[in-house]
Simulated scan of single mutants.
Amino acid sequence: MKTRFIFRCGNKACGRVWAREYDSRMVPVGYGRSVPRYERETETGRKVEAGYDTRCPSCSGMRAQASRVAGFRTAHACDARCTEAKGFKCECSCGGKNHGRAHLICE
Rank of each mutant, 00 (worst) to 15 (best):
R68H: 06
G100T: 01
A70S: 13
R63H: 14
E107H: 07
R73K: 15
M62F: 11
D79I: 05
C92S: 07
F88E: 03
T83V: 12
R63Y: 12
H99L: 01
A85N: 04
F72H: 13
K86W: 02
F72P: 00
G87Q: 06
C90G: 00
A75C: 11
R63F: 13
L104N: 05
F72E: 14
N98R: 10
F72C: 15
H103D: 08
A66H: 13
D79R: 08
Q65E: 14
T74D: 15
H76D: 08
A77V: 14
G100R: 01
R68C: 09
G71V: 08
R73H: 12
N98H: 10
R63C: 11
H76Q: 15
R73V: 14
F88R: 03
I105Y: 06
E91F: 06
G87H: 12
R81S: 13
C82A: 07
N98C: 11
S67F: 11
C94K: 04
R68V: 08
F88P: 03
R81D: 10
R101P: 00
A102R: 03
A64T: 06
A80F: 05
R73A: 10
K89F: 05
G100M: 00
K86E: 14
R68E: 02
A77D: 07
C92L: 11
G87V: 04
C92A: 04
R68I: 11
A80L: 13
A64E: 04
Q65G: 08
C90R: 02
K86I: 12
S93R: 09
I105A: 04
C90T: 01
Q65H: 14
G87R: 09
R101C: 05
C82H: 05
R63L: 15
H103W: 12
C82Q: 01
A102V: 01
E91H: 11
H103L: 00
C106K: 14
L104Q: 10
N98Y: 06
E84I: 04
M62R: 07
A77T: 12
R101H: 07
S67C: 12
A85E: 02
A70M: 14
R63T: 15
T83W: 02
G71T: 04
S93E: 08
G71R: 03
G95K: 01
S67Q: 14
C94N: 03
H76I: 15
H103P: 01
K86A: 09
C90Y: 05
T83P: 00
E107R: 03
H99F: 14
C78N: 06
A80H: 08
I105L: 09
E84G: 08
A85F: 09
R101A: 13
A85T: 03
C92M: 08
A85V: 07
